[in-house]
Computed example of a mutant assay.
Amino acid sequence: MDDADTVLRADAPNTVLRGGPGRAGRLAERLCRTDATQTTLKVRSGNCYDHFHAEPGQLVETDGRTLRVFTWSHRTYVAE
């Protein structure tokens, strides 16, 4: 039987989002779950969307997991 702590859950993060506006002017870094075929992401953040693109071949190891890297490209606002 597998130890519950060593089995990667299906909803566990597999992507790190880097860059973009963060709190107090710092760069943000967030973990999320994405489909392996996605090359762009649009993430809702309040009244706007942050857009990210995949960095081909760039992977990072965090807590025993391999994460794909997406970099912030721009922000758009929700039309009123």
Rank of each mutant, 00 (worst) to 15 (best):
G19K: 07
D63E: 15
R30Q: 09
S73N: 07
W72I: 01
A24D: 15
W72T: 00
D50I: 01
Q58H: 13
P56C: 00
R68G: 06
L67G: 04
E80W: 06
C32Y: 00
P21E: 12
G46C: 06
F70R: 02
D50T: 00
N47S: 09
D63Q: 14
T40N: 04
G22L: 02
F70L: 06
E55K: 13
L17C: 03
T34I: 06
H74C: 09
V43D: 03
V60I: 15
T71N: 13
D11T: 11
A4T: 09
R18G: 01
T71Q: 13
H53N: 03
P13I: 09
F52C: 02
N14L: 08
T62S: 13
Q38I: 00
A4R: 11
H53K: 13
T15L: 05
D35V: 03
H53I: 08
T37P: 00
G64N: 10
T6F: 09
S73A: 07
R23C: 06
E80K: 14
A36T: 10
D5Y: 12
E55T: 11
T66Y: 06
A28S: 15
D3W: 07
Q38P: 00
G25W: 02
D50Q: 08
T40E: 13
D2H: 11
P56G: 00
R44F: 02
D35F: 03
R68Y: 05
G57I: 03
R68M: 09
S45Q: 12
G64I: 10
A36V: 10
A79H: 13
Q58Y: 07
A28W: 01
T15K: 04
A36R: 10
R44A: 11
Y49C: 04
E55M: 13
A24S: 13
H53Q: 14
N14C: 07
T34K: 01
V7N: 04
L8M: 11
D50M: 03
A79G: 10
G57F: 09
G25N: 06
T34L: 02
T76S: 15
A79V: 12
R44N: 04
V60G: 06
R75S: 14
R44C: 00
Y77H: 13
A28T: 06
D3T: 05
P21I: 02
A24R: 15
S73D: 12
G25A: 04
E80N: 14
L8A: 12
L17Q: 03
R9M: 10
L67Q: 07
T37A: 12
E55Q: 14
T76G: 09
Q58T: 14
A12M: 09
P13V: 08
A24T: 07
G19D: 05
R44E: 09
D35M: 01
A24Y: 14
L59V: 14
N14W: 09
L59I: 15
G25R: 03
D5S: 11
R33E: 02
R18L: 15
L41A: 03
T6G: 04
L59R: 15
Q38F: 04
T66R: 15
K42Q: 10
A79F: 09
V16F: 02
L59T: 13
L31V: 08
D63I: 02
R68T: 11
A24H: 14
V69G: 08
S45V: 12
H51G: 01
T15C: 12
L59H: 15
Q38C: 04
E29L: 00
D35W: 05
D11S: 08
T34C: 10
F70E: 04
R26G: 01
R44T: 03
V60M: 06
L59G: 00
F70V: 05
T76V: 08
L31M: 12
P13N: 08
L8W: 03
R30K: 11
